[in-house]
Amino acid sequence: MISTLDFQSDFGRSWWLEPETGEVLFCTEDGVEETGESADDLEERGAVMVDALSSRDAYRDMETFISGVEEGPAKDRLWRAISGNRPVRRFKDALFDFPGMRERWFAFHDRVLRRYAVEWLVDVGVWTGRRPRRPWSSSASSALLRRLFPRSS
Score class of each variant (00 low, 15 high):
10 D>C: 15
61 D>N: 14
123 D>V: 07
114 R>F: 02
136 W>K: 12
48 V>M: 09
30 D>M: 10
45 R>Y: 08
72 G>C: 04
72 G>N: 04
30 D>F: 08
65 F>A: 03
151 R>P: 07
11 F>Q: 14
87 P>D: 04
107 A>Y: 06
63 E>Q: 14
108 F>L: 06
124 V>I: 09
92 K>I: 10
23 E>S: 08
112 V>T: 12
87 P>Q: 00
18 E>G: 00
152 S>A: 04
80 R>I: 09
35 T>Y: 06
44 E>N: 13
129 G>K: 02
102 R>C: 15
103 E>C: 08
110 D>W: 04
22 G>Y: 01
41 D>P: 03
24 V>Y: 00
50 V>S: 00
9 S>W: 11
153 S>W: 09
127 W>I: 01
65 F>T: 04
94 A>P: 03
34 E>A: 13
40 D>K: 12
98 F>K: 10
3 S>G: 08
86 R>Y: 15
144 L>E: 02
106 F>C: 00
124 V>N: 00
126 V>S: 02
148 L>M: 12
4 T>Q: 15
100 G>P: 03
105 W>I: 01
81 A>G: 02
104 R>Y: 11
148 L>D: 05
124 V>P: 00
52 A>R: 02
69 V>S: 10
121 L>I: 11
97 D>T: 10
29 E>I: 09
48 V>C: 09
135 P>K: 14
44 E>S: 15
114 R>P: 02
109 H>S: 13
6 D>T: 07
83 S>N: 08
92 K>H: 13
15 W>F: 10
81 A>M: 01
24 V>A: 04
123 D>R: 12
107 A>V: 14
61 D>L: 13
150 P>A: 01
25 L>S: 07
105 W>T: 00
78 L>T: 05
96 F>C: 14
40 D>R: 12
142 S>G: 14
64 T>N: 13
106 F>S: 06
33 E>P: 03
22 G>K: 03
36 G>K: 01
41 D>R: 03
70 E>Q: 15
59 Y>W: 11
130 R>V: 13
71 E>M: 09
153 S>I: 06
16 W>Q: 02
65 F>Y: 09
78 L>W: 05
2 I>N: 15
84 G>P: 03
50 V>E: 01
120 W>M: 05
56 R>A: 12
96 F>W: 11
134 R>A: 11
38 S>M: 05
110 D>G: 07
115 R>V: 06
100 G>S: 09
5 L>M: 11
73 P>C: 11
33 E>L: 13
53 L>Q: 01
21 T>A: 03
84 G>F: 04
89 R>Y: 10
78 L>M: 11
67 S>R: 15
126 V>D: 02
4 T>I: 07
152 S>R: 11
36 G>Q: 00
36 G>R: 01
55 S>F: 11
82 I>V: 10
142 S>P: 06
56 R>L: 09
37 E>R: 10
121 L>K: 08
124 V>L: 02
39 A>N: 02
124 V>C: 04
152 S>G: 04
83 S>P: 00
39 A>R: 02
82 I>C: 04
108 F>N: 06
29 E>R: 06
128 T>V: 05
130 R>C: 15
45 R>N: 07
8 Q>N: 06
68 G>I: 07
42 L>Q: 08
50 V>I: 14
3 S>I: 06
77 R>V: 10
86 R>E: 14
15 W>T: 00
135 P>G: 13
125 G>S: 09
28 T>R: 12
13 R>G: 12
76 D>T: 06
153 S>N: 08
32 V>M: 02
145 L>Q: 07
122 V>G: 01
